[in-house]
């Protein structure tokens, strides 16, 4: 092909950058996770030893790592369905034929997505304040006693989940909206002629037509929620009593606070494997549901 040299020249810079700053580090992470890379190795590479799967084995026997894993799983299992429900519900509202100013509502509901996470996490930290926070103030009107949202180990993670749903649901709402708009209108007209209720329309037409989008969105959201980090970093610093330490927070401390880079790389890889396994499981479940 005569255009080959130019083609390579065009593609090469980006490929080089992606290779050097992404692919090589990913492979290196695998290699480092099999060593005892620590502060001593950082000072002098000759102190580095190959330790096989020791880092992985030790992590699986570290209660703090399990704690981080359980916290993250809790965040995903509770946060993702809440997030998707909020996205779908608001998408249905905005998409309604009866809605005025749908574009304006869409923008308002989407706004938190583009805000800087650190900044709005700071805002929420004050909204969640036990004494002066508006959330407890509002709850007091419903007769609920003040909750120490970020200071109580039972409430810190739920509070972070609420915040994350607020921050993220607009993203998937936009995707659902596009999918809703691509459902042919005559399907609904036919259903209405048959006297179907709104609820039947949703169950028999909307939900089945949204199935591919639902699968895609849940895969992306699950993967994203597994990467929880900045929320606990800003809002709780992992506390109280480790109740908001996520896997990435654990990796950050292990790697950049204690400089156990070998062990931290193993954490990163375990997280990757878990995300991969959960994605595969979701695809499998979707296929089985399709087959039925």
């Amino acid at each position: 092909m005569k255009t080959a040299p130019a083609a390579w020249a065009f593609a090469a810079p980006a490929l080089l950058i992606i290779t050097v700053f992404f692919f090589v580090p990913v492979l290196a992470a695998l290699a480092v996770s099999l060593t005892d890379f620590d502060l001593y190795a950082l000072a002098d590479i000759r102190n580095l030893r190959f330790v096989g799967l020791h880092n992985y084995w030790r992590l699986l026997h570290t209660p703090d790592f399990w704690r981080a894993l359980t916290n993250t799983a809790y965040f995903v299992v509770v946060g993702v369905p809440l997030s998707l429900a909020a996205s779908l519900a608001t998408a249905l509202l905005v998409n309604s034929r009866l809605a005025y100013l749908a574009g304006l509502f869409r923008t308002a509901l989407f706004a938190p997505v583009v805000t800087t996470l650190v900044a709005v996490a700071v805002v929420w930290r004050y909204l969640l304040h036990t004494r002066y926070g508006l959330i407890n103030y509002a709850l007091a009107h419903l007769g609920i006693h003040p909750i120490d949202w970020l200071g109580d180990p039972h409430w810190a993670l739920p509070a972070i989940i609420l915040f994350a749903v607020w921050k993220n649901f607009g993203y998937n709402m936009v995707i659902f909206l596009a999918a809703l708009q691509s459902i042919p209108a005559d399907l609904y007209e036919a259903a209405r002629l048959d006297g179907a209720s709104l609820w039947q329309e949703f169950g028999r037409i909307t939900l089945p037509m949204l199935r591919p989008t639902l699968l895609l969105v849940s895969i992306l959201t699950v993967a994203g929620y597994f990467q929880l980090f900045a929320e606990p970093y800003v809002m709780t610093q992992g506390g109280p009593l480790q109740s908001t330490v996520s896997v990435l927070y654990f990796m950050y401390e292990e790697g950049f606070k204690w400089w156990n880079l070998g062990s931290a790389s193993a954490v990163a890889f375990l997280l990757f494997l878990i995300i991969l396994a959960v994605t595969a499981l979701q695809l499998r479940l979707a296929r089985d549901a399709q087959a039925r």
């Binding site: 090589v24 992470a29 480092v32 990163a268 997280l271 990757f272």
Partner: peptide
């Protein structure tokens, strides 16, 4: 996930 590359990227 991009965080997998992060530690070696720091070393690089």
């Amino acid at each position: 996930p991009s965080q997998v590359a992060m530690l070696p990227l720091f070393l690089l």
